[in-house]
């Protein structure tokens, strides 16, 4: 489905706005890059909640700085491997928890619920044949007399 030009311009404008928004955050190397789908989902969730008026951006910035600092100050031997968007999630949870937007225990419970739900629970059958075929419409060319 082709994006209309107006849509592309809007996207570019939104994107410039986002680049400005996240430009001052710590711990970024180069452009935004997402290695796994959840990273982009986390990014979009944090931005959407801010745009919806859920919290001031400065609170998220401070929480992100704190989460990264805590990681940096932990002994290298015991800390988790570096994951930039994990700090986004931790910072987001801290902001929502401190504001009382979500209850942190409830987040734990809900996370366990998600983990306990089998992935693709309605859709685990392999499908070995095409689900639809649109046959070629060959018209036989009449023999020349």
């Amino acid at each position: 489905m082709t994006t209309p030009v107006a849509g592309a311009e809007l996207t570019a404008e939104l994107r410039r706005g986002l680049d400005t928004l996240v430009g001052d955050l710590p711990g970024r190397s180069g452009d935004l890059a997402f290695d796994e789908p959840w990273e982009l989902r986390a990014f979009a969730l944090v931005v959407a909640a801010y745009e919806a008026g859920g919290y001031p951006w400065g609170e998220f910035q401070q929480a992100l700085i704190a989460s990264i600092r805590q990681w940096e100050e932990s002994p290298a031997a015991t800390r988790a491997p570096w994951s930039y968007y994990e700090h986004w999630v931790r910072a987001f949870e801290a902001v929502l928890g401190e504001r009382g937007t979500v209850d942190r225990d409830a987040v734990e419970v809900r996370t366990c619920d998600v983990l306990a739900t089998p992935k693709n629970r309605n859709h685990h059958e392999p499908h070995y044949e095409p689900i639809a075929v649109d046959p070629a419409r060959t018209t036989s060319i009449p023999e020349a007399p």
Partner: peptide, 9 residues
């Protein structure tokens, strides 16, 4: 786990 946490939030 983090992916599940994002979904939960």
């Amino acid at each position: 786990e983090i992916a599940a946490r994002v979904k939960a939030l």
